[in-house]
Design a protein around this nucleic acid. Sequence first.
RNA 1: GCCCGGGUGGUGUAGUGGCCCAUCAUACGACCCUGUCACGGUCGUGACGCGGGUUCAAAUCCCGCCUCGGGCGCCA
Length: 434
Amino acid sequence: MEDRTYTADAEPGDSVTVAGWVHEVRDLGGIAFLILRDSTGKIQVKFEKDEMDDDLVETGLGVHRESVVSVSGDVEEEDRAPTGVEIVPQSLEVISEADPELPLDPSGKVDAELSTRLDNRTLDLRKDEVKAVFEIRAEIQRAVRETFRTHDCTEINTPKIVATGTEGGTELFPITYFGEEAFMNQSPQLFKQLIAGSGVERVFEIGPIFRAEEHNTPRHLNEATSIDFEGAFCDHNDAMDVAEDVVVAAYEAVAENCEEQLEALDLAAEFEVPDADFPRISYEEAIERVNATGALDEQLVWGDDLSTEAEKALGDDVGGHYFVTDWPSEVKPFYIMDHEDDEQLSTGFDLMHPDLELVSGGQREHRYDQLIEGFEQQGLNPDEFEYYTKMFKYGMPPHAGWGMGAERLVMTILGLENIREAVLFPRDRQRLSP
RNA sequence: GCCCGGGUGGUGUAGUGGCCCAUCAUACGACCCUGUCACGGUCGUGACGCGGGUUCAAAUCCCGCCUCGGGCGCCA
């Protein structure tokens, strides 16, 4: 295979072997064209029936679309060809013949439903606009990693099989671990805190999280990818600064390095990098603003969580990215620290875009006695989390961090309507394979 | 978990009791065509999710199941 040339690299005058998928065969009678596609693009192969070997013509034009073939021949400059060049073949080998009836149409002439597409992801990914999503996702993750490096973060990997959940055991997938009860991890939360307290100080992880909630929405997955940050000697404002940087860097990377992919998605003209300095709106201000919109039948009162309807009203009102800060302590988990001067107010924050929760974070409770108290207040038994709590007795610095949904980040950057579009093989309430 | 709406050839659809042995596009098969680029033209093959019921008559109405999507709750 070392002699293979990518279609994009085939220059006039070259004698090449290209290999890829048969995109289409256009038989015009005396002349026919086979369009060959590989990861770099497409190239036209010309068949002039009177002037070519009959077997070659028969094999080349008899092949079904999406079959894998290799073609050897001369590259010629030709203005009438779609890319300005075409191959005059000397030989053609059918490497893998495709069934004539495909479960979806990779050329995109006929739409397929998401469910059909996910059942046949390999074929679905042959469409430029689908492939583009995952090339962009890879670029986003690259940019995210690089941004964490500029914040002196070390990449870590924490266990995905755990003995206890972050906030109890109700929404976890139970598994059997050598005869013992165990769970798939819903978040690296507790582990990343332990590492932030170790002396490594600033860490990040990009890894899977698992949630057993039976929700059925276009923005939830049962297996998702979490981008997590945790930093020692950070407070919630520092953590928000990092989140902002990561999000903006992701947009910048896409704008700079994914022109072709944005083109394929028809987003090139309208794509914009958001300004940094996302507004930081306190929870109290947020409920006032929601109430002022008049979108809700009932006015929100202090202590209410923001319903989907309230988030939509707020998102419409603010537009773009914004943080909601200073949440009531009671709606945030035990590991979130309260404000020093007001026990009712937490340092927890969410980053929204415009009505989708992208990030959730806060400063953490690093004081042992207060942490134990927090467990008890939420009805959790601190003894079950001893592996975690005991490390708060041996020198735990103040620290803060957050978790960001990688698929939600991709979804908001590209304006995808369903989060499943941002996952190669999504796991949802109904889907366990492929 | 609660609520709502769907399931028609390989794919995407039209059809809401008889006009339907079911429309259109695309794919597939055959034939014609020497510059296509969503190639074009002629002809053809191919479907009412499963089971039960109502009715003279069911793709269409009712019940159960399976399956897909959406809203809410919850969250990233």
